[in-house]
Design a protein around this nucleic acid. Structure first.
Lengths: 222, 222
DNA sequence: TCTCTCGTCAAACGATCGTTTGCCGCAACA
DNA sequence: TGTTGCGGCAAACGATCGTTTGACGAGAGA
């Protein structure tokens, strides 16, 4: 019957994701979609598998999201809105006292992503993100560029200020390589085994430091 | 009717790929498959699109390769056999006179891949490879590990010898990050625009040096 | 109480998928 | 000159895909 448009899909009524105890149909779909998209890809996961896993009717996806493609976008939006907001906050907080160092800027970029990838379902989402990078789907790339391009531009400007010796072309090159390394690592290829004698938190801190030092070396080498 | 097994598929009669002027049906399929897999993914490219592009009958794929999955493997095998052979040759050639440097080992690993990615269809194949990394398809990963794992192990051993200060865990970590960066870059994300005033060859040489220095910095930073 | 909207549901739609079938023509070989 | 087997072809197979439909019940508002 009535189909709610993508832009007005309840974003005023519920600011934060699930919270409600049994989880709404929309949130159950989003959760199952994230998991199945990560495991089998956007095309590989069918709406029938997805709705069965979520315990909802097949038609629910088209009713609540309009189409499978819109569902994909919503999966991204739900995570990336929070992720990039935290990145921007962290970056803004840096300039308060002194000009930030390269490692501090990298920390602002990397730490929110790593915290997300250590969430309950966050690591699944990082795989989804890696898939999106590998698939040269223009529609999805345009969506990402339009909605979150300003974050990358802001960080790029910061890197350019910190690495004035690099030409624009060189800088873009290195940022691209760093992006590839981080995406690859955080999508779960990097088998970051936590030893049983270190806490979850200290392990994460070690990983953050590891990634930051690698990225800093790749960006600033002579 | 008769279906030739995967292992004996004419690898004795024609050592090198196409060469024959109008190209055999098998090679036309392989070429079209490489292109379409790169553009639309393994699932996204249908056998009908593929055989139409190749100018062959729909049934030809199952006749010559047995199944779509076997075709995927053959696409990989055709490129990776040559690629990894050249890598191993380059690595073996290094030890002749003096113990190799880190940059020389990286050169042996990177240069063959970059030359492939600048080939006619080679760059398409690097995209296929990036997709394979992103898709956590166990069958495909096992195939890659079984057939080309020894190459990665050989280079890893060389890196371990050159970077004795790193723990095993640290070394694996860094190799993984470098792998992600190189895969990402060479699959065509890195927009390596060649300026019109430099030759193709000198541009490639610059790119090789760029990647080597980035990888060396990431591997050996304190 | 009547009406209308919303969410859910089973069922079906047409399209497309990978694979299989049976037939045909050509070339090699006896 | 028959026979045999390989490769190509159109056509169809059953399965699965994303999407749409129409009916049904619960709940809010008049």
């Amino acid at each position: 019957m009535l189909k709610r448009s993508f832009e007005s899909s309840g974003r005023t009524t519920e600011i934060h994701p699930p919270v409600s105890s049994p989880a709404s149909t929309k949130d159950r779909i989003l959760g199952a979609a994230e998991q199945l998209f990560a495991q089998r890809g956007f095309d590989g996961a069918s709406l029938r598998q997805l709705t069965t896993a979520a315990g909802v009717n097949l038609a629910a996806v088209n009713y609540h999201f309009g189409s499978k493609e819109k569902l994909v976008e919503e999966v991204f939006r739900r995570r990336l809105d929070a992720l990039n907001a935290r990145r921007m906050e962290a970056l803004a907080r840096l300039g308060d006292e002194h000009p930030p160092t390269l490692e501090e800027v990298l920390d602002a970029y990397i730490r929110p992503a790593l915290e997300l990838s250590h969430d309950n379902h966050g690591s699944l989402f990082m795989r989804v993100l890696a898939r999106a990078f590998a698939e040269h789907d223009d529609t999805l790339r345009q969506f990402l560029s339009e909605n979150y391009g300003h974050v990358l531009r802001q960080f790029t400007a910061e890197f350019a200020r910190l690495l004035p010796q690099l030409s624009k072309q060189e800088l873009y090159w290195r940022i691209d390589l760093v992006t590839g390394a981080l995406t690859h690592a955080m999508s779960g290829f990097g088998i970051i085994q936590r030893k049983s004698d270190v806490s979850e938190q200290s392990h994460r801190e070690q990983t953050v430091q590891h990634l930051i030092r690698f990225a800093a070396a790749g960006l600033s080498h002579p």
